[in-house]
Design a protein around this nucleic acid. Structure first.
Length: 311
DNA sequence: TTGTTAATAT
DNA sequence: CATATTAACA
Protein backbone atom coordinates (compact mmCIF):
# COMPACT_ATOMS: atom_id res chain seq x y z
CA UNK A 1 0.00 0.00 0.00
CA UNK A 2 2.76 2.33 0.21
CA UNK A 3 3.90 1.63 -3.14
CA UNK A 4 2.43 2.78 -6.27
CA UNK A 5 3.32 0.61 -9.07
CA UNK A 6 2.04 1.76 -12.26
CA UNK A 7 4.19 0.19 -14.75
CA UNK A 8 1.81 -2.17 -16.25
CA UNK A 9 -1.19 -1.72 -14.12
CA UNK A 10 -2.58 1.62 -13.51
CA UNK A 11 -3.51 1.95 -9.98
CA UNK A 12 -6.25 -0.14 -8.65
CA UNK A 13 -8.62 2.05 -6.91
CA UNK A 14 -11.22 -0.53 -6.75
CA UNK A 15 -12.75 -0.85 -10.09
CA UNK A 16 -12.79 2.45 -11.65
CA UNK A 17 -10.67 2.45 -14.64
CA UNK A 18 -8.70 5.51 -14.17
CA UNK A 19 -6.25 5.83 -16.87
CA UNK A 20 -3.08 7.47 -16.19
CA UNK A 21 -1.45 7.99 -19.40
CA UNK A 22 1.88 9.51 -19.29
CA UNK A 23 2.38 12.42 -21.44
CA UNK A 24 5.44 11.70 -23.19
CA UNK A 25 7.20 14.72 -24.25
CA UNK A 26 10.40 13.86 -25.75
CA UNK A 27 12.10 13.45 -28.96
CA UNK A 28 10.24 11.42 -31.40
CA UNK A 29 12.35 8.85 -32.97
CA UNK A 30 13.01 8.91 -36.59
CA UNK A 31 10.42 6.30 -37.02
CA UNK A 32 7.88 8.30 -35.18
CA UNK A 33 8.48 11.34 -37.19
CA UNK A 34 7.02 11.28 -40.54
CA UNK A 35 9.69 11.81 -43.03
CA UNK A 36 9.02 14.78 -45.12
CA UNK A 37 9.93 12.80 -48.09
CA UNK A 38 6.88 10.82 -47.46
CA UNK A 39 3.93 11.86 -49.39
CA UNK A 40 1.43 12.87 -46.82
CA UNK A 41 -0.68 14.68 -49.22
CA UNK A 42 -1.73 12.69 -52.15
CA UNK A 43 -2.15 14.22 -55.48
CA UNK A 44 -5.80 14.55 -54.80
CA UNK A 45 -5.29 16.85 -51.95
CA UNK A 46 -2.69 18.73 -53.80
CA UNK A 47 -5.11 19.17 -56.58
CA UNK A 48 -7.73 20.35 -54.24
CA UNK A 49 -5.31 22.85 -52.93
CA UNK A 50 -4.33 23.86 -56.36
CA UNK A 51 -0.84 23.03 -55.62
CA UNK A 52 1.42 22.47 -58.48
CA UNK A 53 3.61 19.57 -57.80
CA UNK A 54 6.25 20.86 -59.99
CA UNK A 55 7.59 24.17 -60.85
CA UNK A 56 7.44 24.82 -57.23
CA UNK A 57 10.24 24.50 -54.87
CA UNK A 58 10.29 21.09 -53.46
CA UNK A 59 7.59 18.71 -52.83
CA UNK A 60 8.58 18.73 -49.28
CA UNK A 61 7.70 22.33 -48.97
CA UNK A 62 4.35 21.90 -50.48
CA UNK A 63 3.73 18.88 -48.48
CA UNK A 64 4.62 20.56 -45.35
CA UNK A 65 2.49 23.52 -46.05
CA UNK A 66 -0.41 21.36 -46.90
CA UNK A 67 0.15 19.29 -43.92
CA UNK A 68 0.22 22.25 -41.71
CA UNK A 69 -2.89 23.67 -43.07
CA UNK A 70 -4.58 20.40 -43.00
CA UNK A 71 -3.53 19.72 -39.50
CA UNK A 72 -4.64 23.05 -38.34
CA UNK A 73 -7.97 22.64 -39.94
CA UNK A 74 -8.39 19.26 -38.51
CA UNK A 75 -7.41 20.31 -35.10
CA UNK A 76 -9.61 23.26 -35.06
CA UNK A 77 -12.42 21.32 -36.38
CA UNK A 78 -12.28 18.62 -33.85
CA UNK A 79 -11.00 20.39 -30.87
CA UNK A 80 -12.75 23.55 -31.35
CA UNK A 81 -13.32 24.79 -27.90
CA UNK A 82 -16.34 26.86 -28.32
CA UNK A 83 -16.04 30.44 -29.10
CA UNK A 84 -12.41 30.33 -29.76
CA UNK A 85 -11.49 31.72 -33.03
CA UNK A 86 -11.14 29.87 -36.16
CA UNK A 87 -9.40 32.74 -37.60
CA UNK A 88 -6.44 30.59 -37.87
CA UNK A 89 -6.94 30.45 -41.48
CA UNK A 90 -3.65 31.97 -41.92
CA UNK A 91 -2.01 30.96 -45.07
CA UNK A 92 0.96 28.78 -45.02
CA UNK A 93 3.56 29.98 -42.76
CA UNK A 94 6.40 31.56 -44.43
CA UNK A 95 9.31 29.38 -44.27
CA UNK A 96 11.99 31.68 -43.32
CA UNK A 97 14.78 29.49 -42.45
CA UNK A 98 13.11 26.31 -41.94
CA UNK A 99 15.49 23.67 -42.85
CA UNK A 100 14.39 20.39 -41.67
CA UNK A 101 13.93 20.01 -38.01
CA UNK A 102 10.28 20.35 -37.53
CA UNK A 103 9.95 21.47 -34.09
CA UNK A 104 6.50 20.39 -33.43
CA UNK A 105 5.47 17.09 -34.48
CA UNK A 106 2.86 15.51 -32.43
CA UNK A 107 1.60 12.16 -33.13
CA UNK A 108 -1.92 12.83 -32.44
CA UNK A 109 -4.64 10.95 -34.03
CA UNK A 110 -8.10 12.29 -34.33
CA UNK A 111 -7.86 14.17 -31.16
CA UNK A 112 -6.18 12.02 -28.76
CA UNK A 113 -3.76 14.19 -26.97
CA UNK A 114 -2.97 11.43 -24.64
CA UNK A 115 0.37 10.72 -26.05
CA UNK A 116 2.30 13.75 -26.52
CA UNK A 117 5.56 14.07 -28.22
CA UNK A 118 7.51 17.16 -28.54
CA UNK A 119 10.76 17.84 -30.08
CA UNK A 120 13.42 19.52 -28.23
CA UNK A 121 16.25 20.67 -30.29
CA UNK A 122 17.68 22.66 -27.51
CA UNK A 123 20.69 20.55 -27.52
CA UNK A 124 21.16 20.83 -23.85
CA UNK A 125 20.20 17.34 -23.31
CA UNK A 126 18.28 14.79 -25.11
CA UNK A 127 16.55 13.19 -22.38
CA UNK A 128 15.17 10.02 -23.46
CA UNK A 129 11.92 9.99 -21.79
CA UNK A 130 12.26 7.09 -19.52
CA UNK A 131 8.72 7.44 -18.64
CA UNK A 132 6.74 4.69 -20.00
CA UNK A 133 9.15 3.32 -22.42
CA UNK A 134 7.50 0.33 -23.85
CA UNK A 135 5.21 -0.12 -20.97
CA UNK A 136 3.25 2.79 -21.96
CA UNK A 137 1.37 0.88 -24.51
CA UNK A 138 -1.81 2.36 -25.61
CA UNK A 139 -4.09 2.54 -22.72
CA UNK A 140 -6.59 4.57 -24.49
CA UNK A 141 -9.30 2.25 -23.57
CA UNK A 142 -11.46 3.95 -21.06
CA UNK A 143 -10.48 7.28 -22.37
CA UNK A 144 -11.36 6.35 -25.79
CA UNK A 145 -14.97 6.88 -25.28
CA UNK A 146 -14.83 9.40 -22.58
CA UNK A 147 -13.18 12.70 -22.86
CA UNK A 148 -11.68 12.29 -19.54
CA UNK A 149 -8.18 13.42 -19.84
CA UNK A 150 -5.60 11.49 -18.03
CA UNK A 151 -3.63 13.04 -15.32
CA UNK A 152 -1.05 15.16 -16.79
CA UNK A 153 2.36 14.03 -15.90
CA UNK A 154 4.80 16.79 -16.05
CA UNK A 155 7.71 15.16 -17.57
CA UNK A 156 11.08 16.75 -17.39
CA UNK A 157 10.68 17.93 -20.90
CA UNK A 158 7.36 19.42 -20.28
CA UNK A 159 8.55 21.02 -17.16
CA UNK A 160 11.54 22.26 -18.94
CA UNK A 161 9.40 24.00 -21.43
CA UNK A 162 7.40 25.37 -18.64
CA UNK A 163 10.41 26.67 -16.86
CA UNK A 164 11.82 28.15 -19.96
CA UNK A 165 8.66 29.90 -20.83
CA UNK A 166 8.22 31.18 -17.36
CA UNK A 167 11.75 32.33 -17.17
CA UNK A 168 11.40 34.12 -20.43
CA UNK A 169 8.13 35.57 -19.59
CA UNK A 170 9.11 36.70 -16.22
CA UNK A 171 6.98 36.35 -13.22
CA UNK A 172 5.21 39.30 -14.47
CA UNK A 173 3.66 37.74 -17.47
CA UNK A 174 3.94 34.29 -16.25
CA UNK A 175 0.31 33.63 -16.26
CA UNK A 176 -1.28 30.37 -17.09
CA UNK A 177 -2.69 31.42 -20.33
CA UNK A 178 0.38 32.99 -21.66
CA UNK A 179 2.49 30.16 -20.53
CA UNK A 180 0.23 27.69 -22.07
CA UNK A 181 0.18 29.51 -25.33
CA UNK A 182 3.86 29.90 -25.42
CA UNK A 183 4.49 26.37 -24.55
CA UNK A 184 2.37 25.36 -27.38
CA UNK A 185 1.82 21.94 -26.18
CA UNK A 186 -1.07 20.20 -27.60
CA UNK A 187 -3.68 19.26 -25.13
CA UNK A 188 -2.16 21.31 -22.44
CA UNK A 189 -4.86 23.31 -20.85
CA UNK A 190 -4.75 26.42 -18.89
CA UNK A 191 -5.71 24.55 -15.78
CA UNK A 192 -2.76 22.31 -16.15
CA UNK A 193 -0.43 25.17 -16.38
CA UNK A 194 -2.14 26.99 -13.61
CA UNK A 195 -1.79 24.07 -11.37
CA UNK A 196 1.78 23.59 -12.15
CA UNK A 197 2.43 27.22 -11.86
CA UNK A 198 1.01 27.17 -8.45
CA UNK A 199 3.34 24.49 -7.39
CA UNK A 200 6.17 26.19 -9.06
CA UNK A 201 5.56 29.36 -7.21
CA UNK A 202 5.26 27.58 -4.00
CA UNK A 203 8.48 25.86 -4.52
CA UNK A 204 10.19 29.07 -5.38
CA UNK A 205 8.85 30.74 -2.39
CA UNK A 206 10.13 28.02 -0.20
CA UNK A 207 13.51 27.21 -1.45
CA UNK A 208 14.00 29.89 -3.94
CA UNK A 209 15.20 32.18 -1.29
CA UNK A 210 13.74 33.13 1.91
CA UNK A 211 15.52 36.38 1.99
CA UNK A 212 13.79 38.72 -0.30
CA UNK A 213 16.40 41.22 0.58
CA UNK A 214 18.09 41.10 -2.70
CA UNK A 215 16.07 41.10 -5.79
CA UNK A 216 15.94 37.75 -7.28
CA UNK A 217 17.17 37.39 -10.69
CA UNK A 218 14.38 35.17 -11.58
CA UNK A 219 11.69 36.50 -9.47
CA UNK A 220 11.19 39.78 -11.07
CA UNK A 221 12.73 42.10 -13.48
CA UNK A 222 14.27 41.15 -16.74
CA UNK A 223 11.38 39.32 -18.16
CA UNK A 224 11.45 38.25 -21.66
CA UNK A 225 12.49 41.57 -22.93
CA UNK A 226 11.73 41.49 -26.54
CA UNK A 227 10.49 38.75 -28.64
CA UNK A 228 7.10 38.51 -27.23
CA UNK A 229 4.31 39.45 -29.35
CA UNK A 230 1.63 36.94 -28.97
CA UNK A 231 -0.79 36.46 -26.18
CA UNK A 232 -4.33 37.26 -26.84
CA UNK A 233 -3.97 40.85 -25.92
CA UNK A 234 -2.97 42.06 -29.26
CA UNK A 235 -4.94 39.38 -30.84
CA UNK A 236 -2.25 38.57 -33.20
CA UNK A 237 -2.72 35.32 -34.92
CA UNK A 238 -0.02 32.87 -34.44
CA UNK A 239 -1.83 31.58 -31.47
CA UNK A 240 -2.01 28.04 -32.47
CA UNK A 241 -2.67 26.65 -29.14
CA UNK A 242 -2.44 23.15 -30.12
CA UNK A 243 -0.82 22.58 -33.34
CA UNK A 244 2.42 22.99 -34.88
CA UNK A 245 0.97 25.16 -37.43
CA UNK A 246 1.37 28.78 -37.80
CA UNK A 247 4.68 28.64 -36.20
CA UNK A 248 7.19 29.50 -38.80
CA UNK A 249 9.93 29.51 -36.37
CA UNK A 250 9.72 26.56 -34.22
CA UNK A 251 10.92 28.47 -31.31
CA UNK A 252 8.15 29.97 -29.35
CA UNK A 253 10.64 32.16 -27.79
CA UNK A 254 14.18 32.86 -28.67
CA UNK A 255 16.93 31.03 -27.00
CA UNK A 256 17.33 32.53 -23.71
CA UNK A 257 20.32 34.69 -23.56
CA UNK A 258 22.20 33.76 -20.60
CA UNK A 259 21.94 36.58 -18.32
CA UNK A 260 24.17 35.34 -15.66
CA UNK A 261 23.38 37.81 -13.03
CA UNK A 262 25.87 36.41 -10.72
CA UNK A 263 23.72 34.30 -8.70
CA UNK A 264 24.84 34.52 -5.25
CA UNK A 265 22.35 32.14 -4.09
CA UNK A 266 23.37 29.99 -1.35
CA UNK A 267 21.96 26.80 -2.36
CA UNK A 268 22.19 23.67 -0.53
CA UNK A 269 24.97 22.73 -2.77
CA UNK A 270 23.27 22.44 -6.02
CA UNK A 271 24.63 24.61 -8.71
CA UNK A 272 21.73 26.51 -9.87
CA UNK A 273 23.80 27.89 -12.60
CA UNK A 274 21.20 29.53 -14.57
CA UNK A 275 23.67 30.85 -16.99
CA UNK A 276 24.18 27.66 -18.81
CA UNK A 277 20.70 27.60 -19.98
CA UNK A 278 17.19 27.48 -18.91
CA UNK A 279 17.29 23.81 -18.80
CA UNK A 280 15.74 23.37 -15.50
CA UNK A 281 15.82 26.42 -13.48
CA UNK A 282 15.75 24.50 -10.36
CA UNK A 283 15.78 20.91 -9.62
CA UNK A 284 13.02 18.68 -8.68
CA UNK A 285 11.71 15.43 -9.64
CA UNK A 286 11.88 16.47 -13.18
CA UNK A 287 15.54 16.47 -12.96
CA UNK A 288 16.19 14.03 -15.64
CA UNK A 289 19.52 13.32 -14.22
CA UNK A 290 19.39 10.50 -11.89
CA UNK A 291 18.63 11.72 -8.55
CA UNK A 292 15.31 13.05 -9.02
CA UNK A 293 14.18 14.11 -5.73
CA UNK A 294 14.47 17.70 -5.13
CA UNK A 295 11.29 19.44 -5.63
CA UNK A 296 9.47 18.05 -2.79
CA UNK A 297 9.27 14.43 -2.40
CA UNK A 298 10.76 11.81 -4.45
CA UNK A 299 8.32 9.43 -5.77
CA UNK A 300 6.76 10.65 -8.85
CA UNK A 301 4.03 8.92 -10.29
CA UNK A 302 5.68 7.12 -12.98
CA UNK A 303 9.00 6.00 -11.94
CA UNK A 304 10.33 4.41 -8.90
CA UNK A 305 14.02 4.70 -8.77
CA UNK A 306 14.58 2.84 -5.68
CA UNK A 307 11.76 1.41 -3.82
CA UNK A 308 12.95 -1.24 -1.63
CA UNK A 309 13.54 -0.91 1.95
CA UNK A 310 13.41 2.48 3.31
CA UNK A 311 10.31 3.75 4.74
C1' DT B 1 -13.24 36.34 -18.46
C1' DT B 2 -8.82 35.04 -16.40
C1' DG B 3 -5.67 34.46 -12.50
C1' DT B 4 -5.39 32.64 -7.62
C1' DT B 5 -6.26 30.03 -3.97
C1' DA B 6 -8.27 26.22 -1.52
C1' DA B 7 -10.13 21.85 -1.55
C1' DT B 8 -10.22 17.31 -3.30
C1' DA B 9 -8.54 13.26 -5.77
C1' DT B 10 -5.02 10.25 -7.21
C1' DC C 1 3.16 12.70 1.20
C1' DA C 2 3.46 14.75 -3.19
C1' DT C 3 1.30 15.74 -7.23
C1' DA C 4 -2.56 16.94 -10.29
C1' DT C 5 -7.45 18.07 -10.94
C1' DT C 6 -11.53 20.45 -9.69
C1' DA C 7 -14.04 23.99 -7.56
C1' DA C 8 -14.55 28.55 -5.58
C1' DC C 9 -13.23 32.99 -5.49
C1' DA C 10 -11.01 37.81 -6.80
Amino acid sequence: MGEELKLSEYDSSGGNNDDRVLWEVGLPGADDLTPLTLQLIPAELASAFRISPESSKSMADVNRASQNTFSSLQRWHSQDMSSMNNLNFKPFNEETTVTEKDETDLTREGYDPRKLRRVESGGTEEIDSALCNENCADDSSANKTLNKRARLVWTPQLHKRFIEVVAHLGIKNAVPKTIMQLMNVEGLTRENVASHLQKYRLYMKRQGNEGPSSSDHLLNSTPAQQSLRESGESGHHLRNTNGHVGMPTHMPYPPQMVQMPMIGMANGGMPVGYGGGPSVGFHHQYSMMQQQREWSGNNFGYYHPVASNDK
